[in-house]
């Protein structure tokens, strides 16, 4: 599904990540500054690596030697940002419809798709609300709906629960897990929280100082040691 081998050099840091993803949910676990968010942005085409390649499905999205570098628009990736980045000037409906509208779909088609996903994710009542009027969990669902409605091949989520308080977090995590199951879409979830990783992911990769240290099926207890040291 996804094959990544990338090197990106920073003044005091080198990101060197190699990973493969099947039809599964992978958690990319690591401390702040370990390079997890950058890895996601490289896959999405928002950051250009110095070397390597990114293959998404059958599409070569980036290849340094072949000079291939598809822009984010052509990578068919759903991205849920850490800040969620819901467009503050658009209401829930318009946020979700954004990706469909820019593809030039007819009004009827846009409406049909948006209504369907709002129904699935329990957002129908909120369609005219502005993002600033939503709770943390509702925002998260809108961000997911907006990313998923255009039917991407792969979903990337950057620290999806970092903005939530502990109580909301458990609830939202459960929701996200159900959504991932409903849509059965391959996904990479970046997190610094082992519990997030264990609950959501089929497999966990630990990223430390810009390198993948360990890749194990979720639930392997020794991983917790790796992260906490």
């Amino acid at each position: 599904m996804l094959e990544v081998y990338i090197i990106k050099r920073f003044p005091s840091f080198e990101l060197n990540v190699q990973l493969k993803l099947g039809r599964e949910v992978l958690a990319l676990l690591g401390e702040n500054g370990s390079g997890k968010s950058t890895t996601l942005k490289v896959i999405a085409g928002l950051v250009t690596p110095d070397e390597g390649y990114v293959r998404i499905g059958n599409t070569l999205a980036f290849h340094s030697e072949l000079g291939i570098n598809l822009p984010p628009q052509r990578r068919s990736i759903g991205f849920v940002f850490q800040e969620l980045a819901l467009f503050p000037h658009l209401n829930v409906y318009e946020n979700i419809a954004f990706g469909l509208k820019v593809r030039g779909y007819s009004k009827a088609k846009v409406n049909e798709e948006v209504e369907a996903i709002m129904h699935t994710l329990g957002l129908a009542e909120l369609r005219f609300h502005m993002p600033s009027e939503l709770s943390g969990g509702q925002k998260q669902r809108v961000a997911l709906a907006r990313a998923l409605v255009v039917k991407p091949k792969l979903l990337l989520m950057d620290e999806p629960f970092s903005a939530l308080d502990q109580r909301t977090k458990q609830e939202v995590r459960e929701e996200v897990r159900n959504i991932l199951e409903t849509f059965s879409i391959p996904a990479i979830i970046v997190t610094h929280d082992y519990e997030d990783a264990a609950i959501l992911a089929d497999r966990i990769c630990v990223l430390s100082n810009g390198r993948i240290e360990n890749s194990e099926p979720a639930g392997a207890p020794e991983l917790f040691e790796v992260v906490s040291t």
Binding site: G45, L46, P72, G78, F79, F81, E83, G99, V102, V150
Partner: peptide, 18 residues
């Protein structure tokens, strides 16, 4: 305007001009 909004727009398929 945070660049994240623009990044979000790109990943949703919108061109730079859109």
């Amino acid at each position: 305007v945070s660049r994240t909004f623009e990044g979000a727009s790109y990943t949703l398929g919108a061109s730079e001009f859109t």
